[in-house]
Design a protein around this nucleic acid. Structure first.
Length: 557
RNA sequence: GGUGGGUUCGUAUAACGGUUAGUACUCAGGAUUUUCAUUCCUGCAAUAGGAGUUCGAUUCUCCUACCCACUACCA
C-alpha cells in the first residue's frame, strides 16, 4: 500500500533553534516536497521544566524566514494549531496539549506485558547509581536490576494497586526484552543492529505530571499523524532500537516509519559539535535569528541580523552534509526540492566554515537586482542621514549621467534611480548589503577626513596640481590654469574615462599618480571606485566643490 | 567504562573495484585595471595506520588509533 509521504520536524521549545536544527527541518521539508507529501510541525514540550517563553515563536519565525513553510501544524498566521480542522486533522500539535492521549497507550503496554509500573523515588535511583559507580560500574534499570527494585514486577498486586492509587510519583517503564538483537535499517547509515542487553528500561510516562517522555510521545504521535519517514539528528540513533521495539509492542510494525539519522554540525575548529559558545568565540552566528534570552537578557546574534539572505543561509545549510553530486553549488530552496536525496547525505559530521558561508551570500547578492538591493539599502541610507525620493524625471537609462538629476549632496537627497545605479555599480564588490554603504560612501557623502597614509603618499605638489588642472578642464571651475580648454562632453562614465585619460596622456602626466591623488581628494582614500565612475555620479559641481575642500584641508602650494 | 556511529587536501565535498584522486572556499603567485575590487590563469594541499580479499582497494572485510553521540522521571 502506497502511503502519502508525511514527515515532521519536532523541535523542543527550550531555546532558539540552532542552525543544525534548521538543517534538519530543511531536509525534512525538501524530502516532503519532492515526494509531494506533507511537512508537519509538532512541538515537543513534554518537559515543562525546560520550557522557554518565546522559543516556539522563534522556531516558527526562523523557519518562515528560511522559506520552510509547514503544511500542517502551524496556521497561516504562524500559530501552532490547537483545534482539529480539515487542514490540521491531528491538532493539537503541541504535545503538552495532547496529554490525555498518551496515558492509555502507556497502560496498553503494561497490560500486554511490554511495560510496568515503577515506584522508585529519584533518591532511591540516585543511591543505586552512586553505589554502582563506587564499584566502577554503571547502573542500568533493566532485566538485570529490575528484580531488585520497587515496581509492579516485584511488588505484590495489592501493594501495586495501593501505590498506584495513593501516590503520584510513579512512572511507567518499558520492559526491555532480554537477549534480543534488534535489526534496524537507516536510510542514511544502512543496516544497524543492537543487542537489547545493552539497553535499559526507559521511562515512558510520568504520573507526576501525567506527561509522556520523548520516546512514548514520539512514537504515539508519529503513528497517529501517519508519519512515513523520520528524519532527525544523529543523537537519536542510540534510541532507535527502543523505538523499533515500541512499534513492535504496539503492533504498529506494518506502518512504522523509515528512519534517517543526520550527522551533527561540528565546530569550525577543534573538536566537538557546534555550540552557541563557538559563535561568540569565533564571531559568527549559530542561530538563524537574533535571540535574546528572556531570563538573562543575553543576546545571541542571528544570520538574518548579520546580513545574510535567507537563500544563502538555506543554500549553505543544504550543502553542509549533502550535495547533489555535480559541480553546481548554487541552488534555491525550490531548486533543491527535485535534486535532494537522503542517500547522498554524508554520514560524517560537517564542519561549519564561515568563509564559505560568506561566499554563498556574496553570490546571492550579485544575483539580486539593483532594484531589490536598493530597497534593502534604504534603511542604511536613512540611518546615515540620507533621504531617498522618487525621481521627478524620467527613469535614467544605463550609462547616463546623473549630474543634476539624481543627487543633491548639499541636502543629502537622492533619487531612487540614483541609488539603484549606485548599487548596480558596487554590488559585485560586496558580500552584505551593509558593505554597499561602505563601498559607495563617496557617492553619497563628500569626504571630511583623509587617510593619512594616502595623503603622505599621493598628496604631493607635483601631482596634486595636475588634479586641479584636470578638475578645471572637466568642470570649468577656476583653479588658476590659464588658456585651458574646457571639456564639453557628457558626464558619462565612458566619455569621462576617455577625456581624462586622453588629457593626462597628452600632458604627459604620470597616470597612476594623478588618478590616485584625484581619488584621494574625491573620496578621502587612494583606493576605491574608478574616477570616471565617481564623476559620472557626483557631477561637475560636486567635483569642483570636493577639490576645493581638498585644497583647503590638505593644502595647496 | 559500555553501546552505537564516523574518518578523502586546512574546510565542504566528488570519484560502477580500474582517474595524473576532480571541484568549490581559503591561501600564495601572475595577467587585466589609474588604485582597490571584479574577472581570468597558475600553484599549494588529501584517501588516519596496519593486515586481508582481489590482476587491481579511496571504495569490500578485519584490527588499531582518533573523533562524535548516547548511556536522565531532557529532548
Amino acid at each position: 500500500m502506497e502511503r502519502k509521504t508525511r514527515v515532521r520536524f519536532a523541535p523542543s521549545p527550550t531555546g532558539p533553534l540552532h542552525m543544525g536544527g534548521v538543517r534538519t527541518a530543511l531536509y525534512n521539508y525538501l524530502y516532503a516536497k519532492q515526494k509531494g507529501g506533507d511537512f508537519i510541525i509538532r512541538i515537543e514540550d513534554t518537559d515543562s521544566n525546560r520550557f522557554v517563553p518565546g522559543a516556539e515563536q522563534y522556531i516558527i519565525e526562523a523557519l518562515t524566514w528560511c522559506g520552510i513553510i509547514p503544511d500542517e501544524g502551524v496556521d497561516a498566521s504562524g500559530k501552532v494549531v490547537e483545534t482539529p480542522s480539515e487542514k490540521h486533522p491531528h491538532a493539537p500539535y503541541r504535545q503538552s496539549q495532547r496529554r490525555p492521549i498518551y496515558r492509555q497507550y502507556a497502560e496498553q503496554l503494561v497490560e500486554s506485558g511490554w511495560a510496568y509500573y515503577a515506584f522508585d523515588s529519584a533518591q532511591e535511583l540516585n543511591d543505586r547509581r552512586q553505589e554502582a559507580e563506587s564499584r566502577k560500574e554503571t547502573f542500568m534499570y533493566n532485566a538485570a536490576t529490575r528484580g531488585s527494585l520497587r515496581n509492579s514486577l516485584t511488588l505484590p498486586k495489592e501493594e501495586t494497586a495501593r501505590l498506584l492509587e495513593s501516590t503520584t510519583d510513579w512512572t511507567i517503564r518499558f520492559k526491555m526484552p532480554q537477549g534480543r538483537t534488534v535489526q534496524m535499517e537507516d536510510l542514511i547509515r544502512g543496516h544497524v543492529e543492537v543487542s537489547t542487553d545493552t539497553l535499559d528500561d526507559k521511562v515512558l510516562w510520568k504520573r507526576a505530571d501525567e506527561l509522556p517522555t520523548y520516546h512514548l510521545a514520539n512514537i504515539v504521535d508519529d503513528h497517529l499523524m501517519e508519519v512515513t519517514e523520520v528524519i532527525r539528528g544523529e543523537e537519536w540513533l542510540p534510541s532507535l532500537p527502543l523505538h523499533y521495539l515500541l512499534y513492535e509492542a504496539f503492533g504498529w510494525l506494518d506502518t512504522m516509519p523509515r528512519f534517517a539519522h543526520l550527522s551533527l554540525l561540528l565546530k569550525p575548529d577543534g573538536k566537538g559539535k557546534l555550540s552557541k559558545r563557538d559563535g561568540d568565540r569565533l564571531g559568527f552566528p549559530v542561530f538563524p535569528l537574533r535571540w535574546e534570552n528572556p531570563e538573562t537578557g543575553e543576546v545571541s546574534r542571528g544570520y538574518r541580523e548579520d546580513g545574510y539572505f535567507p537563500e544563502a543561509f538555506v543554500n549553505l545549510l543544504a550543502f553542509l552534509g549533502w550535495n547533489p553530486g555535480g559541480e553546481r553549488e548554487l541552488y534555491t530552496i525550490e531548486e533543491l526540492v527535485p535534486v535532494f536525496s537522503l542517500d547522498r547525505v554524508i554520514r560524517s559530521g560537517a564542519r561549519f566554515n564561515l568563509e564559505k558561508a560568506k561566499w554563498f551570500n556574496k553570490e546571492y547578492l550579485r544575483m539580486k537586482s539593483p532594484q531589490e538591493l536598493a530597497g534593502l539599502l534604504l534603511p542604511v541610507l536613512e540611518e546615515h542621514g540620507c533621504q531617498v525620493v522618487a525621481c521627478p524625471c524620467n527613469a535614467l537609462t544605463a550609462g547616463a549621467s546623473f549630474e543634476g538629476m539624481g543627487a543633491d549632496f548639499g541636502n543629502a537627497i537622492f533619487t531612487r534611480e540614483y541609488v539603484e545605479a549606485v548599487v548596480a555599480l558596487t554590488q559585485e564588490r560586496a558580500t552584505f548589503v551593509a558593505d554597499l554603504w561602505d563601498i559607495a560612501l563617496p557617492l553619497f557623502k563628500a569626504p571630511k577626513e583623509f587617510v593619512q597614509k594616502d595623503v603622505e603618499k599621493f598628496w604631493k605638489e607635483d601631482h596634486y596640481e595636475y588634479c586641479f588642472e584636470v578638475c578645471q578642464y572637466i568642470t570649468g571651475a577656476a583653479f588658476g590654469f590659464d588658456d585651458l580648454d574646457s571639456y564639453r562632453g557628457p558626464m558619462t562614465r565612458e566619455a569621462l574615462e576617455a577625456a581624462i585619460v586622453n588629457y593626462i596622456k597628452q600632458q604627459e602626466y604620470p597616470m597612476g599618480k594623478v588618478m590616485n591623488s584625484l581619488r584621494l581628494a574625491l573620496t578621502g582614500a587612494a583606493s576605491g571606485l574608478g574616477i570616471a565612475d565617481i564623476l559620472s555620479f557626483i557631477g561637475r559641481k560636486e567635483f569642483a566643490r570636493r577639490m576645493g575642500y581638498a585644497a583647503q584641508t590638505l593644502g595647496r602650494k
